[in-house]
Nucleic acid binder design. Structure first.
Length: 275
DNA sequence: AGAACTGTCCACTTTACATCA
DNA sequence: AATGATGTAAAGTGGACAGTT
């Protein structure tokens, strides 16, 4: 892994430009999920690889390779004991990296390419890998099938892509994060629209209240009384007269009084409760 | 049973690089 | 052509959790 520059003549720059488009579709990782994780956001994203922007540094001999390992960690191959004083997480990573590094050294030997001494020293610290078009395409394809990988799948994919398993794992993690972010943005837009709709509806209802109040002021007393005493249950649609001292059986506008019954045992949970 | 270890995930952050004004 | 701002994606970090020893 790394910049394989045993000679400038052995490298070639391959430039690609383009845009990407995404399509969301539901998915669920086959792995276990802890309760606080939110798999509902996990969606597939179909990408048009032809349109995906990227810059690739490749060997003129054929197989494109990643540019350089990420940071000093990768250059500390086979030095597990050197980090034993770190936190357990760090030690864990170091172990993983070290074993992967060994694998990568093999890969690099197979490619007959390696870092120059200067690059290997890491003048600027870590360099950043840019995945090739083929690598991205394969990873995307794999992500479409399952947004999480089990160890075997990860190993196989890493071998296939000539990457470290850790890199495959990181790619999937970042990919899930991007998908989730995108979904969050979509949800946000949806909520905004919903909010606008409700605001409009609220405005309309407020206006209606104002109109009804104005109407009430202009009506004669008996009309007001009718409006005030007649109510309709929204669930059973039965119009009934509210018990009112002014409303008696002789009033021509009062409705036949009818004992109202609630539709369920809990009057508060029923619209009829307001009747 | 429970402590230690390991592997994986996620959220957040850092960093290298590309692009654009 | 140089440069600073900005966006993107690879990678680092740390905590949580589940499974295994």
């Amino acid at each position: 892994m790394g910049i394989h520059d045993d000679g400038a003549c052995k490298t070639a720059l391959v430039l690609r430009l383009g845009l990407s488009s995404t399509v969301e579709s539901p998915s669920k990782p086959d792995n276990k999920q802890t309760p606080n994780r939110n798999p509902s956001f996990l969606k597939f994203e179909a990408t048009s690889f032809d349109d995906e922007p990227s810059l690739t540094l490749g060997l003129s001999g054929g197989g494109e390779v990643d540019v350089k390992p990420a940071g000093d960690l990768y250059r500390q191959a086979s030095t597990v004991s050197a980090v034993s004083s770190f936190s357990s997480g760090k030690v864990k990573r170091e172990r993983e990296v070290s074993s992967e590094e060994l694998m990568e050294v093999e890969n690099n030997n197979n490619n007959s390419s390696r870092l120059s001494d200067e690059d290997e020293e890491g003048v600027n610290g870590r360099k950043k890998l840019r995945l090739s078009k083929q690598q991205s395409a394969l990873l995307e394809e794999s992500f479409k099938q399952h947004s999480t990988l089990n160890p075997k799948q990860k190993q196989a994919l890493a071998r296939q892509l000539n990457l470290k398993p850790r890199q495959v794992e990181v790619w999937f993690q970042n990919r899930r994060a991007r998908t989730k972010l995108k979904q969050t943005e979509v949800d946000c837009e949806l909520l905004k629209k919903c909010c606008e709709t409700l605001t409009d509806e609220n405005r309309r209802l407020q206006k209606e209240i104002q109109e009804l109040k104005a109407l009430k002021l202009t009506q004669p007393f008996y009309m007001q009384m009718q409006a005030a005493t007649l109510t309709m249950c929204p669930s059973c649609e039965i119009t009934t007269a509210v018990a009112d001292a002014n409303a008696n059986s002789n009033t021509p506008f009062s409705m036949a009084s009818k004992p109202h019954h609630f539709h369920n045992s809990n009057p508060l949970s029923s619209p009829s409760a307001a009747c």
